[in-house]
Design a protein around this nucleic acid. Sequence first.
DNA 1: TGTTGACTGACTGGATCCAATCCCGCTCGA
DNA 2: TCGAGCGGGATTGGATCCAGTCAGTCAACA
Lengths: 224, 224
Amino acid sequence: MSELHDVAVGAASERIAASLREAILSGEIAPGQWIRQEEVAARLGASRLPVREALRMLEAEGLTEHEANKGSRVPMLGMHEVAVVYQMRERLEPLALTESLPHLTPEQIAHLEQVQARIESDEGLPEFLALDREFHLMSYAGCPTERLVSTISRLWNATQHHRRAFMLLSGPERRWIVNSEHRLLLDAIRRRDAVDGERYLSGHIRRTRTELAQHPEVFAASSS
Amino acid sequence: MSELHDVAVGAASERIAASLREAILSGEIAPGQWIRQEEVAARLGASRLPVREALRMLEAEGLTEHEANKGSRVPMLGMHEVAVVYQMRERLEPLALTESLPHLTPEQIAHLEQVQARIESDEGLPEFLALDREFHLMSYAGCPTERLVSTISRLWNATQHHRRAFMLLSGPERRWIVNSEHRLLLDAIRRRDAVDGERYLSGHIRRTRTELAQHPEVFAASSS
DNA sequence: TGTTGACTGACTGGATCCAATCCCGCTCGA
DNA sequence: TCGAGCGGGATTGGATCCAGTCAGTCAACA
């Protein structure tokens, strides 16, 4: 059957949520911008009701925030909040890695290596952002606790915009450091060494945080 | 105006969410139990639509989980998942405390002391559970990052049932250790000592986790 | 007697219509 | 000229009705 049909059989709210999620993560919908229910419904050919449900789902994923009688929009994070989100990641992601490591299959590890190879092949910015996200989240694929992984996903979602803005202005000349960190992390994963893995991972996140803090122009003005 | 009216002016979905939240946290709705939209709508005098929205809100808070075409229910956590949730708390709550400490007002600290005094006055189990929750979450009241506090709240929500079951069968004879830990934590808060605060707090959570692990009868059978 | 098939009942998912709320701009008055 | 009060338009929130889907049950057939 055609993929058009496959898309259609999925629940409408799921489909709308996927579409909005893509739009938000790609930056098409900017932080602070209101998301009009009717406009989305018309564009995706559905009623407003599944749009409302989709917005609730996205809110649960940390992608939007809702205000009564005013609507939903992508949250605008200030500098300090972004720093705290990164600190949360520094503390949670090593735990997820430790939980994941014993259950990662050789196939999953091989896939991780492929993803890292594609990252190093130096593609465009959107590809880098998607691959970097896939690399890290995939390394938690063995984690038996869904709640931990989804919590981490929320943190990634919340700062996606800042990652893109930061990579845009920092340029590709500093990607070698990401690659070095990823390689060390990947090696620890191959060896299933949780201690080394936690070390490299938290260092990777922490370095990103401190570097991000030196670029205040990435963040929204506190005018909100 | 009467509080009945005050309740009514709030959005219906908010009111329904608050009612369900109370029912779940109090144990009235047991884990694994399906929540029928129509039944809730009839009981609270509303249509099914705000009930659906309320269930989405609760899902965002980690109180329910949703399955397409089947409905919502309170998640049943296995032993390992509860342990991981506690480890997440061990890593996140010290961060929240450190973030909160500089901004806690003397009034808030005084309130914390009152809550601890009420905990030590040895009231019933429901009161203890509510006060213990209030004690910890209140200590994060100064945290300027809402996202961090709400993430922690989700973790508390997820394991509320197990806390109650554990306290029920362990009895009140071991509450002195909670009080000792709370007092040390409270003293660190009074001194605004983040290092000591993190130490006592993570130790408090960790001890609870290990003690909980010795009571497998608290957890749902893996029959789900 | 065991198994498979369709039927039925209940429940969730979605669409349309109506009510309540909020924001913005306008007007009137001091 | 500035501020308070007041509509009008737009947008969200809620109710009712209909369609789709799942599970459990009963009956018929091998």
